[in-house]
Design a protein around this nucleic acid. Structure first.
Lengths: 116, 116
DNA sequence: TTGATAGGTAGGAAAAAACCTACCTATACT
DNA sequence: AGTATAGGTAGGTTTTTTCCTACCTATCAA
């Protein structure tokens, strides 16, 4: 069975793309991907920024459906929710033949240069 | 031969993601993909916006390396430059296994529900 | 119960993005 | 030459985003 896209709490396409526009937020996603679920303090330690500002970034990611939180004692563990990124890949797909064509051309030009 | 990424006039990763954050700009890319190279007026006709505002969107796309222009008489034809989108796909790639795992789980749950 | 820690919300300043009108330049048409 | 068209830049306003300090709530530990 193929699971359906845009299930329960996913953000809109707009929210997902907007969330990815910030390098801080892309970094948070990477940290979660590389380090697994982590409490806020551990994530925040990587950024030179006041805590409430960081909370705001987490909110944007949450509302885009890209992360979710689980309370554990007084900590909140955030984890990656990658499903909305599949939507980005879907968006990307119809462009793929264009960049492939282009890169093939470039490759040919460069190969010819190397022959000389 | 495999062509190298990040060739000559591509924008930075930041510029590409920021360019994609606007629905207007994503729409422009779609129009260029579907309709091929087009003069500004033909593109602009799809948006309810003053011309200079639209020019600004084109500038952002240009500086991200996502479109390029060619002068022809007094018109400027814009065309899609999809290569920076390959960079987005590269960025996306390490997340793929996460969304696949997750969608597989979801699929299983849904299949079980249907059995009842 | 008192104090410390985790992490959020409230409210506001500063910076950036998105939009506008007015204007400029280049090409084309008569 | 004179006028129209395509599309850009200049400069300014409005809106959104990003960041801050101050404060609140919940949990843990003494």
């Amino acid at each position: 069975m193929t699971p359906r896209r845009s299930s329960v709490a996913d953000g809109t396409e707009d929210q997902v793309f907007a969330a990815l526009a910030s390098p801080v937020r892309r970094d948070v996603l990477r940290l979660l991907r590389e380090g697994g679920p982590q409490p806020v303090q551990e994530l925040a330690a990587h950024f030179d920024m006041a805590r409430p500002s960081f909370s705001e970034h987490l909110r944007v990611l949450r509302e885009a459906g890209l992360v979710s939180e689980r309370k554990d004692g007084r900590q909140r563990f955030y984890r990656l929710d990658a499903v909305p990124l599949a939507e980005v890949q879907d968006w990307l797909h119809p462009y793929e033949r264009f960049w492939r064509e282009r890169m093939a051309e470039l490759g040919k030009v460069l190969d010819n240069l190397e022959d000389e």
